[in-house]
Design a protein around this nucleic acid. Structure first.
Lengths: 223, 223
DNA sequence: CCTGAACCATTTGTATACAATAAGGTGGGC
DNA sequence: GCCCACCTTATTGTATACAAATGGTTCAGG
């Protein structure tokens, strides 16, 4: 993680996620290299990675831009996530061993702890959540599935709006994880898949609602 | 396509697909650069692309190797393809316009022509087949889905064993395409999805059978 | 005033040199 | 004779210089 290429990657990535680099804006390799304190070579490397994750898009003349995600794009991403993570949950349920199941349980306990503080520890929740899903993905034992979902999970918009989630939404998420654990314990692939699918779809609508609110606020402050 | 990076990409790729670079063997950037007649920079670029397509894997020390695909890996890939292409077919059926539908029809006519020559024009069949699926993917109007499937479609093993397909298998493939066209014409997403899913799954079993045969031949000649 | 072509600036692609790192072999010590 | 440490070497990572290509701008001509 200390290599220049990685610093460039995480640096550019956080610039995009934080909105420091606005969506749609052109990003020159030279400028990024300077801001990250590395040369263009690792920046190019990082841009390729980000491009494969669809955080960066390139026009026909190979210029790089920050990808702008329409609500349709985001819905598209969530739809794929629902399908792929549902599939992962099914495979995981059919293959999971007791030790991994225990890891998941501990993970969800940590998530609960993060929720119950006042105010809720959203960062802690997100970390726990990410690990929870990562363990399931690992248990699914499908390297290709893992590679694909890897690119999908880290959607920029989720990060910027996660702070908007209320305690109620966080608690519901924890509850759905509990139901997943029950499905895993019984090795019931069908159950796990449907729970995971609705888990993701609900997350999308929670996002869409929050985003709707944000857009209204933006429009209001703009006028 | 005339850039050095692209030459390196297609060069290395064909070396892997043809078996010139055996599965599991280490591939040094310097050596590849020399063989492709370019410097290491575009080779590195190409290797990253191939890595994201899972044709190349890297160990913990960043050394590159030709990926070796076990039957399990391949089954895994086909399973994902069945799911994702099924999804693409559903979306395409719900969105397709008459002009695109006509393109698909013409495409399948070309496939039929390739089958009916004696001996069957397998290369022509593969080209037509690829375009057929590409048009569907385009009609699905999901950039993320397209990006994901892009990496999956070009499986090396398919290429090496496609020659094994008999005329009967090719004809059945054409027939399934016809059924897909019927589903598209009626904008029946469910129908399209299930036809596509079974189309892919059958293709996998056709491959697995052929591979079984090949493995037996290899074993026989080896002993 | 509009059009278009040529020029200049900006940006990306490629090559090469050098630095860092990991693997493997070799020698010394136990 | 075996094991560990060190050194050598092979391989990848990074920086920089230069080449190619793209886009915008300006100036000339209609």
């Amino acid at each position: 993680m200390s290599r220049a290429s990685d610093r460039a990657y995480s640096g550019i990535r956080s610039m995009i996620l934080s909105g420091e680099l606005p969506a749609g804006s052109q990003i020159g390799e030279e400028a990024l290299a300077e801001r990250c304190g590395v040369s263009r070579t690792p920046v190019r490397d990082a841009l390729r990675r980000l491009e494969s994750e669809l955080l960066v898009k390139r026009n026909e003349a190979q210029r790089s831009f920050v990808a702008d995600w329409s609500l349709d794009d985001i819905a598209d991403g969530f739809e794929l996530r629902a399908m792929l993570e549902g599939h992962a949950a099914r495979r995981a349920a059919e293959r999971i061993d007791d030790e991994t199941l225990q890891r998941l349980r501990r993970c969800n306990i940590e998530i609960l702890a993060a929720i119950q503080t006042n105010p809720p520890d959203v960062t802690g929740f997100l970390d726990g959540n990410r690990e929870f899903h990562a363990v399931i993905l690992e248990a699914a034992k499908s390297p290709r599935l893992a590679a694909m979902l890897g690119a999908l999970i880290e959607q920029p918009v989720v990060w910027r709006t996660a702070q908007q989630y209320g305690r109620e939404a966080l608690r519901r998420s924890h509850g759905e994880h509990e139901e997943l654990l029950a499905a895993f314990a019984r090795h019931d692939g069908d159950w796990a898949q449907s729970v995971m699918t609705s888990h993701i779809r609900r997350a999308f609508h929670a996002y869409a609602d929050a985003h709707q609110g944000l857009a209204a606020i933006d429009a209001g402050s703009g006028s």
